[in-house]
């Protein structure tokens, strides 16, 4: 069955509209966080998608190293690119939340710091790609770098376990957030909507990379014929 881009985008829009409605209007204020919980409904899904897209990037990089198929390099690069965008959204929305909750946008909390390190590691990935001219070498070197850069993902995820942190956690008890009923529904809908939109963006980014490759091959071919 053919993938229907328009239907998929329609479903994504409906899920996200519902998610926004639940988060802004149906969900009650949380006991500890109060109205700030609504920021959290939009911040957490973006953080989850950041980790998810970097896992996709890592798996594709490993598959590229095993098979040398260029499609895996294309997937890996597209996923890392989206990781940068979602990383910025996560960092900025986290800073807005931090300012409202702690009175300061940035206070070098372990979760903030390790997520910034993660983001910078993937900025390095793109600088590396730009610095290698030979396409085959670029793909191999960046795939190896990607595997190393991924080490920052578990570091960011587990940071509040390794170091004392003010960052809220979802687990029950121990200072964790106690979400229930409509709050869980709002969070689940926002996570689902976030992932659906990510899948749509990933298909677009991958499509652009494939056409770019095709164009570069055509230019090289034309130059070879002309020369």
């Amino acid at each position: 069955m053919e993938f229907r881009d328009d239907i998929f985008l329609g479903i994504t829009a409906v899920v996200n509209a519902l998610a926004v409605y639940f988060a802004l209007f149906l969900s009650p204020a949380e006991v500890e966080m109060g109205e700030l919980v609504r920021v959290f409904y939009f911040h957490l899904p973006q953080a989850i998608v950041t980790y998810l897209t970097l896992v996709v990037s890592l798996v594709s990089a490993i598959l590229f190293l095993r098979t040398k198929a260029t499609k895996y390099d294309a997937i890996s690069e597209s996923a890392a690119f989206l990781g940068l965008i979602y990383g910025v959204i996560t960092l900025v929305s986290g800073a807005i939340w931090a300012n409202a909750a702690w009175g300061v946008y940035w206070n070098w909390d372990p979760r903030e710091t390790t997520t910034l390190v993660l983001w910078l590691a993937y900025v390095g990935y793109f600088f590396l790609r730009m610095s290698v001219e030979n396409p085959e070498r670029r793909s191999s070197v960046s795939a190896v770098y990607n595997v190393l850069a991924f080490l920052t993902v578990p570091l960011s995820y587990l940071s509040f376990i390794i170091w004392p942190s003010l960052h809220p956690r979802l687990a029950e008890g121990g200072g964790g957030l106690g979400l229930s009923g409509t709050m869980v529904q709002a969070l689940v809908l926002n996570i689902l909507g976030g992932i659906l939109f990510y899948v749509w963006l990933m298909r677009k980014a991958y499509g652009v990379r494939l056409i770019k490759d095709e164009l570069e091959t055509k230019i090289a071919e034309d130059a070879r014929i002309a020369g």
Partner: peptide
């Protein structure tokens, strides 16, 4: 504010990707 940040960024990215794709396609045909 956060909702606006998320959606403006993602919508901007979508439009940018669509535009880049259409530019590349026209270059490929031309």
């Amino acid at each position: 504010m956060v909702l606006g940040l998320v959606w403006v960024t993602l919508a901007g990215l979508s439009l940018w990707l669509i535009r880049v794709r259409s530019n590349l396609e026209s270059k490929l045909k031309g």
